[in-house]
């Protein structure tokens, strides 16, 4: 992904200013990842500032990470994408706030900065807005643990710290890619296991003897305990190794280099940007003319009562993908 992006941007550089790409040092996949992770952490800080519920924060981080599965920081800077992802998450989780209020709380940001990328972000998410969260799974397992036959009646009071510290691991897991590889409940169990391994094991064992519902073909076969334990251990090591906020200095260094290797078509004022804009305008103009011609043609046909009945009428709108509202 990173290589492909570098290739495209290098070509763009070359197209507008031959030879200019040779001394550009592009950011690599690892550095892209570092930068995105840093802004995942930023989301968490912003959410604290706005006092958004956990669900908003978790959704926005998933959106940001998913966005960069399909895009590169050299095209879209995570700082702007983060703001849009968070705003979109407030809406998809049913916690909407007014855009003006939102933008006014963020320095150097106007409403349009947030909105301009909204479609791009939604598209990159393939309009899959619902996210199933690990913190919900954690809460579910925690409630279930309290129901274990031999758990103490006041476990939620005496052992409440287990839940609290597991939740801290869940938040750390958000900085990692674990959610792309494992299910929310597996990650949640791993977080409990990081805090109280015996309790996690006991809970898992209590589930082993529950028979699967009969006559249900829609439930996939249950993984063996060994497979599950292996997954849990793998998640645990991901969280321990990668669940950290990146070093600010390292991020700053990447960001500084990013300024030199951004896709020139996306930087306002560069030659490439202007060229692309001119091209887009030319295209729009052509389309407009074409549409006008079609209208003229069909209008002429209408007014001529003896118009050639054999000529195929032009049907605007049938394959005209950019067809805007017919009535605006």
């Amino acid at each position: 992904m990173n290589e492909a992006a570098v290739g495209v941007i290098r070509k763009t550089f070359e197209a507008y200013e031959p030879g200019s790409s040779s001394n550009v040092s592009f950011v690599n996949a690892h550095e892209e990842h570092l930068l995105v992770t840093f802004y995942v952490h930023k989301i968490s800080q912003l959410c604290g500032h706005f006092r958004f519920p956990e669900e908003v924060e978790a959704t926005a981080t998933s959106y940001l990470k998913r966005f960069y599965l399909k895009n590169t920081v050299m095209d879209w800077h995570p700082k702007s994408v983060m703001l849009t992802a968070l705003f979109l998450a407030t809406k998809t989780t049913n916690n909407p706030i007014s855009l003006d209020v939102y933008a006014s709380h963020i320095p150097n940001t106007v409403a349009s900065d947030v909105l301009d990328l909204e479609f791009l972000v939604a598209q990159s998410l393939a309009f899959e807005f619902a996210v199933w969260h690990t913190h919900r799974a954690l809460w579910g397992i925690w409630l279930d643990i309290q129901n274990l036959p031999d758990s103490l009646p006041d476990i939620s009071k005496t052992q409440g710290s287990i839940y609290e510290s597991a939740l801290i691991h869940v938040r750390a897991a958000r900085l990692t890619d674990a959610e792309f590889m494992y299910t929310p409940s597996q990650i949640a169990l791993a977080c409990i296991s990081l805090t109280a391994p015996d309790l996690a094991k006991k809970w898992l064992e209590s589930k082993e003897n529950i028979p699967l519902p009969e006559n249900r073909t829609d439930i996939p076969p249950r993984p063996s305990a060994t497979t599950l334990f292996a997954s849990i251990e793998a998640i645990k090591s991901i969280i321990t190794n990668a669940g950290k906020v990146p070093d600010v200095e390292a991020v700053r260094e990447v960001d500084r280099r990013l300024r030199t290797c951004k896709n020139p078509e996306k930087v306002v004022g560069t030659k490439a940007y202007l060229a692309r804009k001119a091209e887009a305008e030319k295209k729009a103009e052509e389309k407009k003319n074409k549409k006008a011609e079609i209208q003229k043609a069909s209008g002429a046909a209408d007014t001529d009562p003896f118009g050639d009945p054999l000529s195929e009428p032009v049907k605007p709108g049938l394959v005209d993908y950019d067809d805007d509202d017919d009535d605006d």
Binding site: K91, S98, E118, F129, D325
Partner: peptide, 25 residues
Amino acid sequence: KKIKVGQFKDGLDMSAIREVKYLRE
């Protein structure tokens, strides 16, 4: 169903978001 979005000052509108979110699931 073409939802006109440009007219909303807060971007994608909530009912469109709800519809997409739930029907996708």
